[in-house]
Amino acid sequence: MDSIRSKIKQRLQKFVELDTSGLRSSVLSFFLKEKNVTVDDLYEAIKTKFNISRSSVASMVGYIHSKLGILRAYKESYKTHMVYTLKDEYVDLIKSILYSKYRSANLDT
């Protein structure tokens, strides 16, 4: 279990490290704040702050779900949208990585 967690931690750190605009951190923060998130919810929340299309948001959520492995996805029926939630075991990890990014950004200024 620790090896999977350490791999996810490395992937997550790299994901946040490559965040030049703050978009990735905002997406992760939104997942921390909201329990159940659809792509439309996320798009509505960040479209005013970032110049991004809905399909780009969907692509990023898909990447986070499949490559980072920190999201759980489900559909209530075939007619509803996919709902994403953070896996409980990674909430503390995400918080610490975002906090360290925030701290290092404030130390640089």
Rank of each mutant, 00 (worst) to 15 (best):
H81T: 15
D19Y: 10
I97L: 03
G22N: 06
D92V: 05
G22C: 04
S104K: 15
Y78H: 11
Y90E: 06
M82F: 11
K75M: 09
L28A: 07
M82A: 15
K75Q: 13
Y102P: 00
V83L: 07
L93N: 01
H81G: 15
L86P: 09
K7V: 08
I8A: 02
Y84V: 09
A58C: 08
G69Y: 00
K67H: 09
S53P: 00
V61G: 14
K79C: 06
M1Q: 10
A45M: 02
R72A: 12
A45R: 03
V16W: 02
Y43G: 04
T109Q: 13
S56T: 04
S100W: 02
V16L: 03
D88V: 11
L28R: 03
L23E: 04
D41H: 14
Q10E: 09
R11S: 12
L12T: 01
S66L: 07
L68N: 03
S3D: 11
D19C: 12
L86Y: 12
T85R: 11
L42S: 02
V39F: 01
E89T: 14
K9E: 09
L71C: 07
L71K: 04
E17W: 00
T85A: 13
K33G: 00
K87V: 05
K9M: 02
S25V: 05
N51T: 10
D92H: 14
L42V: 05
L107R: 08
S53K: 10
T48C: 04
E76I: 08
K47W: 05
D19P: 06
Y78A: 14
S25H: 03
S53H: 06
L32R: 03
N106A: 14
R5M: 14
I70A: 02
F30M: 10
D108M: 11
K67P: 04
Y102Q: 14
T109D: 12
Q13W: 04
S66I: 00
T38G: 03
Y43M: 03
I70G: 02
I94M: 03
G69C: 01
L71R: 00
L86H: 14
L93D: 02
I46E: 03
E17L: 06
S66K: 13
D19N: 12
S26L: 08
S55H: 09
T109E: 12
L23V: 01
R54V: 06
T20S: 11
V27F: 01
S96T: 06
T109M: 10
S77K: 01
K35Q: 11
S55M: 08
L68K: 02
T85L: 09
D40S: 14
F30K: 12
E17R: 09
R103L: 15
F31A: 02
S96P: 08
S96D: 12
I46K: 06
L86N: 14
K7L: 13
M82L: 15
V61M: 13
V37G: 01
S100Q: 06
K79G: 07
I64S: 07
I70T: 03
E76Y: 06
I64N: 07
D88K: 15
R103N: 11
V27D: 05
Y78I: 08
S96Y: 07
V91Q: 10
N51I: 08
K35W: 03
K9G: 07
A58K: 11
Y63G: 13
I70K: 01
S29Q: 12
E17N: 11
L86D: 11
Y84T: 09
T38Y: 00
S29R: 13
K14S: 12
K47Q: 11
E89Q: 15
Y74W: 10
E89I: 12
V39A: 05
